[in-house]
Amino acid sequence: MSIARFSPFELLLLKSRSQVDTATLLLLAWVLVHRQQVSEGQRRRRLAQVTAQFRHGHELGPVMSIAHNQDLQAIQLAAEVVRKECSNERSLSILYQAITVATDDGELSLNNHYILGFLADLLNVTPATFSTLFHELTGKPLQSAEDPSRDAYWQVHDPEYHARKARDAHAAEQKAKEAEERQRANKEQQQQKQQNKQRQQEEAHREKAKQEQAKQEQNKREQDKQQERRKRQEQTQQQERQRWQQEQKRQEEARRQQRERPSSPPDRNTRALAVLGLTPGANRADIRRAYRRMAQLHHPDRFYSGSEHQIALASTRFQRIKSAYDYLMQNT
């Protein structure tokens, strides 16, 4: 026992001379409400035109307002009445009317796509019959509904938005590039300065060596008379020169090592650590834990339900993580 009052549509149905016609009227009005770019008067006129043969015997205004409210209970009631009372021929004619009403201007709105599918199911019309009917009425095959929950739909229907987005992204990229170039220029300048310094140092060294040599030659000339001493001195000089050359070599090597050591191996280490989301100074246990977590997160098997592109992206990510881990395990 319900204490609820009779709803407007129930009253309409009770007063109607033909319940099926009233119910059909509401379903058609529901379709019309979801037509875009149509004025209210046009809708009402169209509904009156389509249902000229109906025997309901009441005003159309209340039906339209119920359809506008999207009153689910009323629509359900209408659907039940239609399903109960319709023969096969009648249901085909209702679907026929619904399709004409929905596609007067040639465009089937997405809302109506779903509504027509619902009506076809309700009236027990198979998809094959429905699509041939649709093709006959509109001259166009029924296409599957587009999906506005996807990015691709808006790329077609609102290209401006994507153009704007792309422009923004491009601007940001350019800025980043400029900043990078500036940094690189700075670095190059610094490197040049360093090189200049080194060259100056080397030149100074060489001059010193020359002076020493000159002095030594002078000594040689002075010590011409004292052969024995000279020989001994020569030996010592040679030894000294050798020592000096060796020292020079050692220094150069040290310098080269100094230049290389801070740049290459620790940099690769930090990069590998960054791939695993760690900071320098992480120990092996940390690395192993981080690797396990990242591998779980980025394993391609997690994306088996996604597109091929997604899977490919995931596997490259996974590959990077794995190679970083291997490198770190070898080098720490």
Binding site: A79, F118, D121, L122
Partner: peptide
């Protein structure tokens, strides 16, 4: 979502167009 609800109430959740 309205149609989903209607289909659930009318037993049309496994119909051909859905």
């Amino acid at each position: 979502s309205d149609i989903g609800q209607l289909r659930a109430r009318l037993g049309l959740t496994h119909a051909a167009h859905w």
